[in-house]
Design a protein around this nucleic acid. Structure first.
Length: 223
DNA sequence: GGGACGATGTCCT
DNA sequence: GGACATCGTCCCC
């Protein structure tokens, strides 16, 4: 699992569909002789020109230009003077721009390096948040524009949901410019998500999530 | 050219 | 629950 990069056609579909299908896939960071990897458990979709919360909302300018280009590349940006966030460009052929923000991972490979990078031993907090996961995985602006469909310093490998896993749909986090659009998707019951739907930050004792939350159909991407 | 603020995380109370 | 770190962008002088 996670050794073959997803092909470009995976990303050439509706942004919301790609977002949901990215759950369970594996983000891989190769840095020198090190390999860091984590399973994607939480994402958010940003729909370009029709989405006031998207950096692409104001048009094809500056850093956002990338979201109007080739799908399957990564859009990295810097926020709050402290953190990097990583997105994947994904959109149907009709859409002008679109991207999926990676919000949380389940650490798989290189956990000790991630602990060092994050300065904490708590495995549930190493990669449970967009800023945390980039810190753990050593992702910054140098990787802006990296082609994630090629075996390289950063790519997304195959994988999928386990049969019992269900996708939960929720409002996006930290978004102030668009009304509450239910464009956040996470794996129900994962102990590695950032913010549980309708609650504050996730702590170990609040988990696992159980049924009763609004849900989207669980589905698998066919290789 | 400058000021406000953000797709956040951490520490403190 | 709230302050604040800290800087790239955007938007409006």
């Amino acid at each position: 699992m996670g050794t073959t990069p997803l092909p470009r056609i995976f990303y050439a579909r509706d942004t919301l569909e790609v977002a949901k299908d990215l759950l369970g896939k594996v983000l891989v960071r190769s840095a020198g002789d090190r390999k860091l990897a984590g399973r994607i458990v939480e994402v958010e979709a940003y729909k370009g020109l029709s989405d006031p919360a998207s950096h692409a909302y104001r048009g094809e300018n500056g850093r956002a230009r990338l979201m109007f280009g080739e799908v399957g590349r990564c859009y990295v940006y810097f926020v709050y003077g402290n953190h990097y966030c990583v997105n994947v460009v994904a959109k149907s052929s009709r859409a002008k721009a679109g991207a999926v923000l990676l919000r949380a991972l389940e650490p798989l490979t290189g956990v000790e390096v991630m602990r060092r990078n994050r300065g904490t031993e708590d495995k549930f907090r190493l990669t449970s948040g967009p800023g945390r996961l980039t810190r753990a995985m050593e992702i910054d602006l140098k990787l802006y524009g990296t082609d994630l469909t090629k075996l390289g310093s950063l790519y997304i490998g195959d994988g999928g949901l386990r049969p019992e896993e269900v996708i939960v749909t929720a409002a996006r986090v930290g978004v102030t410019r668009a009304g509450q659009r239910p464009w956040r998707f996470l794996i129900a019951g994962s102990e590695y998500v950032s913010v549980s739907p309708g609650q504050g930050a996730v702590s170990k004792t609040q988990l696992p999530l159980k049924a009763g939350l609004p849900q989207a159909k669980s589905r698998r991407y066919r290789q």
